[in-house]
């Protein structure tokens, strides 16, 4: 009797397991109903209504195998993505006056289960931040016509770097303010055995420093719009690029998915911070063979203005476009 019961149990269990596997297989091949609830908000957490949501849910491996996503958010900034899906959901969220954001779920069919023809969990909630576009256009940025990496003029000595001019301080460059101090060392035995270091110090300016942030890769504005002035600003950083004889690598730097929000050029009154300038340095920022590589950055020349909304995307989309429009307008005027 025991044997029969055990066998019945095993067979039932096996059938259930097989049915589950089959359902999952079918869902990955032919799709199951997916539901994802988006709430689109701005930086302040306020809902963004009428934002366009456009994209698709994958339904197979061939062309046209997708369920379109197309609509706008309601007054609460909410939009529900619903439809048949095999593995991937992606859409753009756009609205005039905001930076584009992306909503992306990859490997859906492998990170979800299926019950009654529906992917589980069903109806997950997601908050999408759509960042407002201010484009104050007043921030100082590196001049790529002159620099994309900076040759290191001296080793084993502190060097001043001007974050507004994005250059070494005089006499090594055109900088006037020692906004940050940098100290480089190098030793290279061969192309595969070396040690390069870069010490970063804001200690020459009281209350100056920086904090590290992860870039927001889902938005066209990868950084914050405003520096958080209440954040803890760290005054020193140590970066190293090393590979030893055993092939062990130590690579510590501000990597390409990070950025530093800095505060510098401070003035102090009665022991309290009076004025400061803010900006950001975008990774990768690291020492190299004979140069310092710095991806990008910006400096707000207005004291106590914490706006750091700038950088590549803004410059290359909005500002270039505005320039283009301006030129076209001038041309039109000339032609008339």
């Amino acid at each position: 009797m025991k044997v029969i019961v055990t066998h019945c149990f095993i067979v039932t269990f096996a059938l259930c397991a097989s049915a589950q596997d089959l359902a999952l297989y079918r869902a990955r091949e032919h799709g199951a109903l997916a539901r994802e609830c988006l709430r689109v908000v701005d930086q302040d957490g306020l809902p963004v209504a009428d934002a366009k949501v456009w994209g698709g849910l994958q339904t197979g491996g061939n062309l046209r195998d997708f369920t379109p996503i197309s609509g706008v958010t309601d007054t609460n900034g909410e939009y529900v993505i619903q439809g048949k899906c095999t593995n991937r959901i992606r859409c753009d969220i756009t609205k005039a006056g905001y930076y584009r954001s992306e909503f992306l779920l990859t490997n859906y069919g492998y990170s979800h289960e299926v019950k009654a023809g529906k992917w589980q969990p069903h109806g997950d909630k997601h908050t999408i931040v759509l960042k407002k576009r201010v484009d104050n256009g007043k921030l100082a940025v590196p001049d790529k016509r002159k620099h994309i990496s900076w040759g290191i003029p001296l080793y084993d000595k502190w060097l001043g770097f001007d974050l507004e001019k994005f250059d070494w301080c005089k006499p090594h460059g055109i900088g006037n303010h020692e906004d940050v101090l940098l100290y480089f060392t190098r030793s290279k035995k061969s192309n595969s055995v070396f040690r390069f270091t870069m010490d970063v110090s804001f200690t020459n300016n009281l209350f100056a420093g920086a904090y590290v942030m992860k870039k927001d890769l889902s938005s066209d504005l990868k950084t914050l719009s405003l520096a958080n002035t209440n954040e803890t600003f760290q005054s020193e950083f140590h970066y190293v690029r090393e590979r030893n004889e055993d092939g062990k690598r130590t690579m510590i730097w501000l990597n390409e998915n990070e950025y530093l929000v800095f505060r510098t050029r401070t003035t102090v009154e009665d022991g309290k911070l009076n004025y400061a300038h803010y900006g950001c340095i975008q990774g990768q920022w690291s020492p190299d063979l004979d140069s310092m590589d710095l991806e990008d950055g910006c400096f707000n020349p207005a004291p106590n203005d914490a706006s750091i909304e700038d950088g590549f995307y803004l410059r290359n989309t909005v500002r270039d476009y505005a320039e283009h429009e301006k030129n076209m307008g001038q041309l039109k005027g000339q032609n008339q």
């Binding site: 790529k144 016509r145 994309i148 990496s149 290279k188 192309n191 595969s192 070396f194 390069f196 690029r241 090393e242 590979r243 690598r249 690579m251 390409e256 975008q282 990768q284 190299d288 063979l289 590589d293 710095l294 991806e295 990008d296 950088g311 590549f312 290359n316 270039d320």
Partner: peptide, 17 residues
């Protein structure tokens, strides 16, 4: 390489696109 590796896909090596 660990040294003199330069990612062209960043913003350093372009001016607009």
């Amino acid at each position: 390489l660990g040294l003199e590796d330069h990612n062209l896909n960043g913003t350093s090596y372009r001016d607009g696109w």
